[in-house]
Amino acid sequence: MTRRLSRETLIKWAPLLVLIALVIFFTALNPTFFSLRNFARIAIAAAPALMVAIGVTFIIVMGSIDLSMEGTVSLTAVSFAFIFAQLGGSLAGFGWIAIPLVLVLGGLIGLLNGLVHVKLKIPSFMASLAMGFVGTGAAILLTGGDIVKVGDAAFRGLLTVRWLGFPLMVYVAAFFLFVGWFIQTHTTLGRNFYAVGGGEDLAHASGLNVTRVRVTGFALAGVFYAIAAILVVARIGQAESVTGANFMFVSITSVVVGGVALWGGIGGVWNALVGVLIVNVIDNGMVVIGLPDFLQDGVLGLLVILAVVLSTDRKMVSFVK
């Protein structure tokens, strides 16, 4: 009994311990790592990734997967830049209307994603991968391969205005982290995610409309991807068809390394937070201690395998595809 308990406890707290160990490790090698300046740098890099990670966390908790984030982020980022410019190109004017519009657009893309997956009965990883390609294609179509600049000073304030050393976008991300947490723990939808992930047959037998929960989950994820897109545009001041590039690998890695089980039902937004921080601390720490940054993808790849292996109860799984 104690052995089993200790394994579960270990798995639950391992990601946080890894994060703390990494911070101590990098600080020991280079003390400038442990400074407000550097933490702000990590937070800026992590904020959009955290939004994507929270979105996909809901999906993974349901036992599905969403690989559409690259296309969705690119398309919503480009759309945001265009709508923003059309509405006067300033937050002070009517530009702010672009924000809710793009959130709705993200939700619609996610909705479509969910419908393709559920109605056509295509496994979610393939349905969302294909939809992601369509999203990237649409972004290329809109921009014609060009870069769309967003230079409005008020909007860029998300990056340039700082409170207590951190830019506004970090607080925006923190706010939506709480929104995600609220949805997860205090709404029927959140509980239904866990019901579907814990055992779809059982959830269905209990009278839950599994189809609707799944589709809603994908739509919700789409809204979070749109938030991520807006934060990315605020950070780099431009949108293009490759704005979403690499988000897939990084966000899936983060969520899994943070302790969300791929089999569904286990983990949540806090795991996503810890996972995103682990990934970004590794990323930042490698640069700080002078290691080449190209090792990042390889290290993350190995980490994600390790995380899945640790979180899998071998007795429960007969075979995987």
Binding site: I65, L67, F125, F249, I252, T253, V256, L262, F294, L295, Q296, D297, G298, V299, L300, G301, L302, V304, I305, V308, V309, T312, R314, V317, F319, V320, K321
Partner: peptide, 21 residues
């Protein structure tokens, strides 16, 4: 190790990308 192939190949793809870089 019972890791679904879409994740394991994604991860190995990351390793290959690192080697390439």
């Amino acid at each position: 190790l019972f890791v679904p192939s879409f994740i394991s190949t994604l991860a190995v793809g990351g390793v290959a990308f690192s080697i390439a870089q």
